[in-house]
Amino acid sequence: MSDDILFDLRGISKKFVKGNDTITVFENLDMSIARGDFLAIMGPSGSGKTTLLNMLGGVDQPTSGEVVFDGKRVDTLSENQLAAWRANNVGFIFQFYNLMPMLNAERNVELPLLLTRLGRGQRKKNVAAALELVSLSDRAKHMPKELSGGQQQRVAIARALVSDPKLLLCDEPTGDLDRQTADEILEMLTLLNRDYGKTIIMVTHDPEAAKYAKRTVHLDKGEFVAKELAA
């Protein structure tokens, strides 16, 4: 296995059982993601984009197959081991930001650091640096409801990267934002990928957003299709 492979999915199947029906989302899917990649996943609604992202992020597990991250299997971890693994390796960016409405921006950003051994002083420094990176230092004390959608998403990005994970997973990070704000967010992700070496996997419906990525894959009915060739 090559050293610059971060993620390796081998023979992944994913089925949902609902009563008598079984929905098969993936059947024997293989996929590799290189360290430092910025990958956009596109595809029609219901094609399995979120399901794939959830399995990569360790919040959902494949029915069969192996998920190998950094040379180690993560699909076999227990729920609490997975939580610890996520805390160390993954930053999530959600379509609807998912900030805690009762905490101000800097408290929101601090959350992942509460799972580390860092002391209060160090946490404060890291939070300030993360907010600086998303150009929101002046909004540290603001509550989420006092921030615009784009600002909230920037707080969410700061939260995702404050504990310095290798991997950022984004599900429609700009789905709720206007074009200009979306471009700001996407430029920020590009910067994190290029200058900070973060591996980014982004699910999106938006071809404009996908242009920021280094590479785009298209999912359809649980399979990758070569869009470029078909077109």
Binding site: A83, R86, A87, F92, N98, M100, L111, L115
Partner: peptide, 14 residues
């Protein structure tokens, strides 16, 4: 529920 799930995604324990 969504706040709880978000914290769990970040790595908070159940």
């Amino acid at each position: 529920a969504r706040e709880i799930a978000t914290l769990r995604a970040i790595g908070f324990s159940n």
